[in-house]
Design a protein around this nucleic acid. Structure first.
Lengths: 209, 209
DNA sequence: ATCGCTAGGGTACTCAACGTACCTTATTTG
DNA sequence: CAAATAAGGTACGTTGAGTACCCTAGCGAT
């Protein structure tokens, strides 16, 4: 009896051999845990395999490389929450949405997301997949919706409902993250983005007023 | 005679042993060449050392790690050209500057820059250094200058001369690069950035006109 | 019930690259 | 001219991605 059964390192005990979806789950759970604890850098194939109580073969049979597993694990980790915000005024809505995005991005989860973005920059397919899992079109729709409500209230001209306008605050926020290496954009900056750029732009797009 | 003197692989022949600045130069030249030919991924310490006709010791005595050498090499590679553009009109100036930035960013050199930005994201000090070498404050000043000229011409309100406004087109351009994985932002997008966002914002910042 | 195919499990390995340790040797400088 | 100092030459130690095989559990079709 030289061979000592590992009986799983952490939680996952393969008393009975798992297959298909069950194993998928176990691997993703382990990978997500690694992401949460040590970021993308800690997501090594060996560690994930060991933690899931399996081996690298099972991982490589499912994902072609580490980055792909990383993206999948992030999708498992993130739940893409998006509490609808309606403060009754354009400025309040915009600030609320921006603050929520800032909270997400400055959380540990946001740090992981940025690591993954950097790692998948060369693979457009993966990048798109990651972007979608990180909010993507949902977030976009929220901003357009916000603008439409403002128009309905008479707070903004119809011309303001435009993808460029809608995405602008998020792009600026992302710019702040890129500029500072440090996460956490201070709240006054968010206010400035809204008051000095977003709202003036919405106003500036009025026909000729 | 088993030991065969390498006598330098490519161009650099250490007939006489180089020291200090001369060696700095040789290393940076080799590193920049690797960046140009194979990007940051190709910039391995062994390759650079071999190409410079020296060894890793000399590199590690000068830079603490690969990323630092990468940034230094990029500084050596880039010349931060910035031909002053004055088309006589705000729109033309903005487009010209934006097009030039786009050209730089979509060049191979731009690809290297993006790789480096990703690699130094975790080290604020390096990031700042890289940012400075990539134009940084110079570019910023150019945009502010552009706005000032527009104000002098009566094309824009004084309120438009504002850091947020000045940096906006570049931030949007960067956003495009982040959005598409692929480099090369089509020209119509640049026009849209100027016409749909930048100019309306400048207009929108007028006091109450 | 049994047989065989498929997917999991166990390991060992190759390869690339970073970063280090140590010694020998050429230059520079006091 | 002698002692520092910096270069050159190697050889490691380590980590981690991928890959290759071979063995075995368990599901499904006959």
């Amino acid at each position: 009896m030289t061979t000592q059964k590992p009986t799983a390192e952490q939680g996952e005990a393969p008393a009975r051999r798992r297959r298909g979806a069950a194993l998928d789950e176990a691997i993703l759970r382990a990978a997500a845990a690694e992401l949460r604890e040590s970021g993308y850098a800690g997501l090594t194939m060996d560690r994930v395999a060991r933690r899931a109580g399996t081996n690298k073969n099972a991982l490589y049979r499912r994902w072609p490389h580490r980055a792909a597993l990383g993206v999948a694990a992030y999708g498992y980790l993130a739940d893409a929450s998006l509490p609808a915000t309606d403060t009754g005024a354009l400025r309040g809505d915009a600030l609320a949405l921006l603050r929520q995005a800032n909270a997400t991005w400055s959380s540990p989860q946001g740090a992981v997301l940025r690591e993954l973005l950097a790692a998948t920059a060369e693979d457009p397919h993966l990048l798109a997949s990651l972007r979608e899992q990180a909010g993507g079109s949902t977030l976009n729709a929220a901003w357009l919706n916000l603008l439409s409500r403002a128009v309905a209230r008479g707070e903004a001209p119809v011309e303001a409902v435009h993808p460029r306008v809608a995405t602008l605050p998020m792009v600026l926020l992302r710019g702040e993250y890129a500029l500072r290496g440090t996460p956490t954009v201070p709240d006054p900056v968010l206010v400035e983005i809204v008051d000095e750029v977003f709202l003036p732009l919405v106003r500036g797009r009025a026909p000729n007023r």
